[in-house]
Design a protein around this nucleic acid. Sequence first.
DNA 1: CAGATTTTAGGTCACTTGTCCTATTTCGGG
DNA 2: CCCGAAATAGGACAAGTGACCTAAAATCTG
Lengths: 192, 192
Amino acid sequence: MAASETRQSIVAAADDLFYENGFDHTSFAQVAEVVGISRGNFYYHFKTKDEILDAVIEKRLEDRRTMMSQWSSSQETPRQRVALFIRILLTNEAKIKAYGCPIGTLFTELSKLDHPGEDSARRLFDLFRIWLKRQFELMGHTRDADDLGMHILARSQGVATLANAYPNEPFLKNEVQQMLAWLEALEASGNT
Amino acid sequence: MAASETRQSIVAAADDLFYENGFDHTSFAQVAEVVGISRGNFYYHFKTKDEILDAVIEKRLEDRRTMMSQWSSSQETPRQRVALFIRILLTNEAKIKAYGCPIGTLFTELSKLDHPGEDSARRLFDLFRIWLKRQFELMGHTRDADDLGMHILARSQGVATLANAYPNEPFLKNEVQQMLAWLEALEASGNT
DNA sequence: CAGATTTTAGGTCACTTGTCCTATTTCGGG
DNA sequence: CCCGAAATAGGACAAGTGACCTAAAATCTG
């Protein structure tokens, strides 16, 4: 198989395993087994574990970038786009209840490990933060656009964490509704 | 030294290390070194790593219980007590910015590790959840007391996560103010 | 088809981990 | 003071880890 394809398979498998079991707790052997290659071959594609982490973060950045592009083309108003962001919680409900937020949990882990990849992981937050800020600016909230973005980002994080702790409750759906209501009320009070 | 004192020292050191570096990433050797005892002695007090985890969670539960008792005796109204809960974020601002929420990050990690201690860790959430529910009931929000408790719990979690990601910003203080304002507005709309 | 390059497999290495054992030291009660 | 129990120290062990190496296989190129 071409090297790039194998590489993609590895990154995809590592992405899942890092999400489901954590970065530190995922071993070379596990990833190799999922991909169906030997540990030796693994080293041909990635020399260190940190290299895989970088590749996984890069993939996650790219995936989110394309997702946001689709949002931009499918939805007319910035409010509708922010609503799409909020609704990720519903779109990925099952996985979030099982493993939490892929961005938040990764950052939290790397932060605790004092891992150099912490900065790259923060860029995942930045991606949404800046995008959200832009949407709120377009909604007329130029002054506090960043605060609003951070606010909704934080709410999403908290909902993901507690939905992970209490998966068998309507909590997630309730909170999404509240966030959408908050967004609508915000629209009405726009033009700052 | 008496066994119980050494045991306490071990649990206290493990509590800190689990918080700062994570449970999985903290080794017997590290804890022993902090406490100043040998690895062999360690095994005399705790036979497995899971036993230490249980003891740490038990200690955290106990610490929070006493904290909430003090809140109950120092503050008259339930609203003031909930305000104290919200203000933990400010009280522990430095540690939260450095390591996140000790309860949330522990649960998240154990969840990812598929560790049996996940259930015990959830009881830490339960402790606050039930206490908050009671306060909202006392405020007259009998019908949606649990939802309100979960809401403020989730907000706190989200704020802690993002404060950890962006420690050099006024974000945490801003959000605490917003949560307190939310609480005050809620009081006005009470008597459900 | 033949040779060179890419890709893969499997084994080795040093290190760390949790667990466990045994010998020694410390300490409290008779 | 002395002895038995409590507490400690230090090492041993198997298992798993990331990292690394070399030889074989697969693939591509001329």
